[in-house]
Amino acid sequence: MCHLENKVLQNPELRPFTYCRYVDDIFVEVRSESHLMELQQAMESSVLKFTYELNLHNKIPFLDILISSEDDQYQTTVYRKKTDIGRCLNAASECPQRYKLSVIRAYLRRAFRNCSSWTLFHQELSGIMQILSNNGYSNTVQGEDEELEASTVEEWSVVVPPGQCPIPQLNAGDHLDGRPGNENATTPNLQP
């Protein structure tokens, strides 16, 4: 696949504005649908076949991220399929407390990693709290090991300098790994 990418993407006529691949999922931002067709045709010059999905209302899912484009900026948040019914390890299950805490940590880590603004992060936290509540979790951590509870709080205590936000903003044309698409792109400072 890398050989094919190197061959096709060196052509300036075919090169998309944004190209990100994870295993067999590819996110591209192109000029038009005809540009996408040309890119698909060039990529299919090998034995590989590609399918595509166009954005709907300027939103498209990529892996576990919902990417929306507004005012030449990307906004990202957690994506859940329509078939997701919000089930996770139940709080009343016969599992060690550390597994239950791992469920909470995983949800928080995913929200922190995927949400591009504090507003979206807090919206996702509301959804996480509802999912956890539906699965029997309470608002407090109850367990035999208070040190485990204290380490969890310390792990998620994030020091954010005033006026700074650790969540990167992406502008249209930027790479999804945070590299700017052009030298004039900046990351705005957000208030937490």
Rank of each mutant, 00 (worst) to 15 (best):
M43D: 06
T18W: 05
V78P: 06
G86P: 05
Y19N: 00
H35P: 09
D25I: 13
F112L: 07
N55E: 09
D72W: 00
L14N: 00
S45W: 12
R87G: 10
D84E: 13
M43C: 09
Q169W: 11
W118G: 07
K49C: 13
E70Q: 04
N55C: 09
D177A: 04
E147F: 02
P162R: 10
L66S: 01
Y99A: 02
C115H: 03
Q75W: 10
L132M: 02
G173F: 01
D25W: 14
V141P: 08
C88G: 00
I128A: 09
H35Y: 05
S138N: 12
M1H: 15
S68C: 02
R113W: 12
D64Y: 05
M43W: 15
R80Y: 15
G143V: 04
L63C: 03
G127H: 15
S45Y: 15
I85N: 05
S116L: 02
N6P: 01
G178P: 04
T18L: 02
T187K: 15
F62M: 08
M129C: 08
P166G: 03
P188Q: 07
L132I: 00
A185W: 08
E155N: 01
E94L: 07
L108G: 01
F50D: 07
C20V: 09
S157K: 14
E33A: 11
S138G: 10
R105C: 10
Y137W: 04
S157Q: 12
I85G: 02
E29I: 11
E29K: 10
P162N: 09
F17C: 00
W156C: 09
E94R: 06
N189G: 07
R113D: 04
V28I: 15
V78K: 04
P168N: 14
Q169V: 11
L9Q: 06
C115Q: 02
P168G: 08
S46R: 06
Y19K: 00
I67V: 09
L89E: 00
T140H: 11
G127A: 13
L101M: 10
R80H: 13
E94Y: 07
T77H: 06
V8M: 02
T140C: 05
N171P: 02
D71R: 15
D174I: 04
T18R: 13
T119K: 04
L89Y: 01
D84L: 13
L14K: 00
E155A: 08
S45D: 15
H3D: 10
Q73M: 08
W156E: 03
S117G: 06
A106G: 11
G143A: 05
D84I: 14
E70R: 07
N58W: 13
G127L: 13
G173Q: 00
D64R: 11
L4P: 03
F121N: 01
E44R: 14
